[in-house]
Amino acid sequence: MPVIGKPAQKPYVKSEQDAMIEQFAAQSSKTSIGRSVAEAQRELGETEIDPFWELMPSLIQSRFPVIKDNQLERVAGMVKHALLSPDNQSLLDQNIIDDPWRPHNEIHAYMPNLRDTKPFWDTNELTICKELNENYETICDEYKALLEDRKDRFQSVTSMNYDSGWKTLVLFYNGHRIPDFPYHLCPVTTKLMESLPLAGRIAGFNRQSPSSGIPLHSDGNNMWLTLQMGIHVPKEDKAWIRVGPETKHWKEGECILYDTTYEHETKNESESEERVVLHIDFFNTLAMTPVEIEVMRYIYSMREAFMKAEGVGKVGNQIL
């Protein structure tokens, strides 16, 4: 006897579910992102594309059903570049190709038609810079509390950092919290950092040894900006960073904001004092829309999950 008031469950029919999946895939293929994937497939010919990107049109449409397609046109451009780069650099804006300070052949994650950029950005454009400055003493106290924690959490996040005397006390990895990290020791720092849409790589406290520096390089993601605030800085302007043709010196409690698609290098010329900065990579809120940032954060999170499922142990810069 059927249970009164409880609707009968419809039996599972595989053919019906397959038909629904095919219908959904057909619909998502007509979106701007779906068209970008199809166009890249045609250009690549018989070359197989990463199956992750084949799934993305359906995943994004399922996750964000109310977002209008015209809001994702620049994201679609990013997807096409991800599929065709580095073999095809014609998708890059001409101002990147023409800029001698931005190694365009190193651009690996790219969104087209963002606002004009520059080596250093005006920190007055972001309220977070003022908030970090106002909480400088508290952030320093929380940094000291982390140093006094029983576990040394500094690590070399790349071989380049290790060779150049740069280690990081990582608070966030690929934009998310780290399991079992003692965030109760740094609540204000954590809250302020999470007020930004944290991007990939790392965010935390960077320590630079005396008489050392980061060699000249560029980071190939034009969707991110980097924000740093001086925590402990050697006196007499001994610690500096050059981005493109411009050089700035860190100051304690003051922020600098810059675009790492420009070539850049750092130096701590002090022979006895280390240099410590709070370092945050985040999606460019001054050039990208909130919708674009939300979708890009979803893509990055899915990419990380996808790569881990494939057995990639440490997922960092290689996500995109």
Rank of each mutant, 00 (worst) to 15 (best):
residue 103 P to C: 10
residue 308 K to V: 12
residue 142 E to G: 04
residue 84 L to G: 08
residue 58 S to C: 11
residue 296 M to D: 05
residue 47 T to S: 13
residue 154 F to Q: 00
residue 316 G to N: 15
residue 113 N to C: 10
residue 72 L to I: 05
residue 265 E to P: 08
residue 58 S to R: 13
residue 20 M to H: 15
residue 288 M to G: 08
residue 277 V to E: 03
residue 236 E to V: 10
residue 277 V to W: 00
residue 159 S to F: 01
residue 61 Q to G: 04
residue 261 T to Q: 04
residue 123 T to N: 09
residue 13 V to D: 15
residue 104 H to Q: 11
residue 292 E to D: 08
residue 23 Q to H: 08
residue 73 E to L: 07
residue 151 K to N: 10
residue 228 Q to V: 08
residue 116 D to W: 06
residue 27 Q to F: 08
residue 282 F to T: 09
residue 315 V to C: 11
residue 288 M to I: 02
residue 141 D to P: 10
residue 79 V to S: 01
residue 228 Q to Y: 10
residue 50 D to A: 03
residue 2 P to E: 11
residue 101 W to H: 07
residue 83 L to F: 03
residue 238 K to I: 01
residue 125 E to N: 15
residue 244 G to N: 02
residue 256 I to A: 01
residue 78 M to C: 12
residue 218 S to H: 06
residue 284 N to P: 06
residue 298 Y to I: 01
residue 132 L to V: 10
residue 66 V to I: 08
residue 279 H to R: 12
residue 74 R to L: 06
residue 98 D to C: 02
residue 283 F to I: 02
residue 261 T to F: 01
residue 24 F to M: 07
residue 275 R to T: 13
residue 303 R to Q: 09
residue 75 V to P: 01
residue 138 T to K: 03
residue 312 V to N: 11
residue 64 F to A: 04
residue 51 P to M: 15
residue 15 S to E: 15
residue 195 S to I: 08
residue 160 M to T: 14
residue 151 K to P: 00
residue 3 V to N: 08
residue 29 S to I: 05
residue 222 N to H: 04
residue 183 Y to G: 12
residue 99 D to F: 00
residue 176 H to W: 09
residue 52 F to W: 00
residue 155 Q to F: 06
residue 206 N to T: 12
